[in-house]
């Protein structure tokens, strides 16, 4: 839980608090840091990775998880997986959505269009819960921003400067392959699983990925673009979920850089203007 976040903490609170932070025990394992193409001030999504991640989502995750705030059309938008509009239209057409009422007053099914939002696998939350052992699978639209783990002091202060903000995707990428045998003494209820990264360790979702379950596109030499392993699937689908949660990230970081360069130059000019104006005032620089 990254919660304090006060800038004021930069000023003080050093010795005392760091001792406390170290003394704290973590009940769950810290997800390892993944090197993401989209981290840092110039980070950008890797199109081919997003396409692979989409394939994992499409063939595996979307059987249970909704992604209701993402529209098909966005898959072809700039800064995303880079599908062509034709691909997106063809993909959408494979889904049925309810529309209506028509002139006769009837609701009807029609093939989805790019403008439609991603259809949910279950008609409602209750149906989703009933089909999944009582726990409705969470929606994926913003899940990469809705998950995190506690950084603690002083790391959360450093994160301001290093811009580390991939706690959510790191967690998802660790969670998906994070299933293992429960340690001795830990009781796992029937229908539940043990995952070392999940808060409380007992998770309702069965291990979703197996090696080779999703076939990746082949390179020119006939080899898959990336290893068809659980680890790789997890990373790719996590990257895709980051895009789904933050589709305008690339544009945002581009604007950030331009705005900072502008402000730096502008502040510089103002600084020298200030020095010039104050130069005649005795006792001031």
């Amino acid at each position: 839980m990254k919660s304090i976040k006060t800038l004021i903490a930069l000023v003080a609170l050093s010795g005392l608090a760091s001792g406390v932070a170290l003394a704290q025990s973590h009940e769950r394992e810290i997800p390892p840091r993944v090197t993401w193409s989209f981290s840092g001030p110039f980070g950008a999504y890797d199109e081919t990775q997003l396409q692979r991640g989409f394939k994992v989502f499409h063939e595996v995750c979307s059987n249970c998880h909704s992604m209701s705030k993402v529209a098909f059309r966005t898959l072809a938008e700039k800064g995303g997986p880079g599908f062509t509009p034709e691909q997106v239209t063809a993909l959408a057409a494979t889904y049925k959505v309810k529309d209506g009422p028509n002139d006769a007053g009837d609701m009807f099914d029609r093939p989805a269009r790019p403008a439609d939002f991603w259809p949910s696998p279950f008609p409602n939350k209750q149906a989703a819960a009933a089909a999944n052992g009582g726990a409705a699978p969470p929606d994926f639209s913003v899940i990469a921003k809705a998950r995190t783990y506690e950084r603690g002091f002083p790391w959360f202060v450093f994160d301001i400067f290093t811009q580390y903000q991939e706690q959510g995707v790191d967690y998802i990428a660790a969670l998906l392959p994070g299933y293992e045998e429960a340690p001795a003494g830990e009781v796992v209820p029937a229908g539940k699983y043990y995952n070392k990264y999940f808060p409380g360790n007992i998770i309702a979702m069965p291990p979703p990925l197996q090696d080779g379950a999703v076939t990746y596109l082949k390179d020119a030499d006939g080899k898959p673009q990336a290893p068809e392993t659980v680890q790789q699937y997890a990373k790719d689908v996590s990257a895709f979920l980051m895009w789904a949660a933050e589709p305008h990230m690339e544009q945002r970081k581009e604007i950030a850089f331009r705005a900072l360069v502008f402000l730096l130059v502008f502040a510089g000019l103002l600084y020298f203007a200030k020095r010039k104006i104050w130069a005649n005032v005795e006792g001031h620089a």
């Binding site: 913003v142 809705a146 301001i160 903000q165 600084y271």
Partner: peptide, 29 residues
């Protein structure tokens, strides 16, 4: 104006580079 420009750099850093740092992940649920 000079001080404001410096302050705005901090603002831009947060709003454009780490926009969710000061928020809570739970609020995306």
């Amino acid at each position: 104006a000079f001080a404001l420009s410096c302050f705005l750099m901090v603002y831009v850093w947060f709003a454009f580079y780490i926009p969710n740092f000061l928020g809570h992940a739970d609020n995306y649920i």
